[in-house]
């Protein structure tokens, strides 16, 4: 029933995909980009040591310019990852390979950039670009570490629930709490109402990153609830369920925040880096 044109050429491609081993972005193609980045760094170091730069190693020597050009090209290319990941078609490329290259080539910039400075550091726009580059790399290293270590705990915390289901479960407990709280006295009922009316996402960035919510109304309600009557015991049981559900949601929020927080530094710093880099390049050519 070959009712549509084309496509048969994909069989080989698909079989290759189904046959291929399952590897992460770090191990992609047996560390291909790690080797390329290492080779690049080693070559640059050898060049730096062996080429006699007059009067001294400096960004302005011919070798310095070469290193600068390589570094500049790499930075521009690395920053294009943001476009790449949002534009999946056309082209038979994989984002995993791009990420792999981004990580290892990005790390090689430490070597290339440092050699390009010729170890001449000062209070100027050139050093600013260099420092910004290092900061971007440091935040990137944090990113690689959390990408490699946190996903398993994200999965374990999820317990097969989607984010929507977690919130639904919380709403369902809330509905039951509302009914169960009817027989309580005023003070206790107020505690339950406060717990129910508190925004799940309240607490701010710090709470989200640390997972500590000192203002949690559910915890407070649990603390202030008696356990004498049957009604109170039922409410306490439900509040405990609510606290448990909250802690799952907060756990998910925390891990997601840790996985994403560095991007809020990495990307603005990249933009600042490109600005500083432009100033650096223009000033160098202006004072040639």
């Amino acid at each position: 029933m070959a009712t549509r044109a084309g496509g048969t050429g994909r069989y080989a491609q698909d079989e290759k995909r189904r046959d291929s081993d399952h590897v992460s972005f770090l191990k992609h193609r047996r560390f291909r980009w790690l080797w390329i980045a290492l080779a690049l760094s080693v070559t640059c170091i050898l060049g730096y040591v062996m080429i006699d730069q007059q009067p001294r190693p400096n960004g302005g020597s011919w070798y310095g310019y070469t290193l600068g050009t390589i570094g500049f090209a790499l930075i521009i290319w690395l920053s294009l990852l943001g476009v790449r990941k949002r534009r999946i078609n056309p082209g038979a490329w994989s984002l995993k390979a791009w990420t792999s290259a981004h990580v290892y080539l990005g790390l090689s910039l430490i070597v290339i950039g440092t050699l390009h400075t010729g170890f001449q550091i000062g209070w100027n726009v050139h050093t600013l670009a260099y420092v910004l580059m290092l900061l971007v790399i440091v935040t990137g290293i944090y990113g690689v570490i959390v990408y490699a270590t946190l996903p398993a705990s994200l999965s374990a915390n999820r317990k097969e629930m989607t984010r929507a289901q977690m919130l639904e479960a919380l709403t369902a407990i809330g509905r039951q709490l509302e009914t169960a709280a009817q027989p309580l006295d005023r003070a206790e009922a107020d505690l339950v109402i406060a717990a129910l009316s508190q925004d799940v996402f309240a607490g701010g960035a710090l709470a989200r990153l640390t997972g500590r919510y000192p203002g949690c109304a559910t915890a407070r309600a649990l603390g202030g609830m008696g356990t004498r009557s049957e009604g109170e015991q039922r409410v306490v049981a439900l509040l405990e369920k609510r606290a448990e559900q909250l802690s799952q949601i907060r756990g998910a929020l925390r891990i997601r925040a840790l996985l994403e927080v560095w991007l809020f530094i990495h990307i603005p710093l990249t933009i600042a880096l490109i600005a500083a880099l432009t100033a650096h390049v223009i000033s160098v050519f202006f004072y040639w």
């Binding site: 549509r4 084309g6 496509g7 994909r10 491609q13 698909d14 995909r17 399952h22 590897v23 992460s24 972005f25 992609h28 990941k85 999946i88 078609n89 056309p90 082209g91 038979a92 490329w93 994989s94 984002l95 995993k96 791009w98 990420t99 990408y147 996903p151």
Partner: peptide, 19 residues
Amino acid sequence: MCSGIDGGPACVRACPTGA
């Protein structure tokens, strides 16, 4: 399965970590 799209299924190609 992203039929007719060069490179195959977009879901796999778009995964940054290989998951």
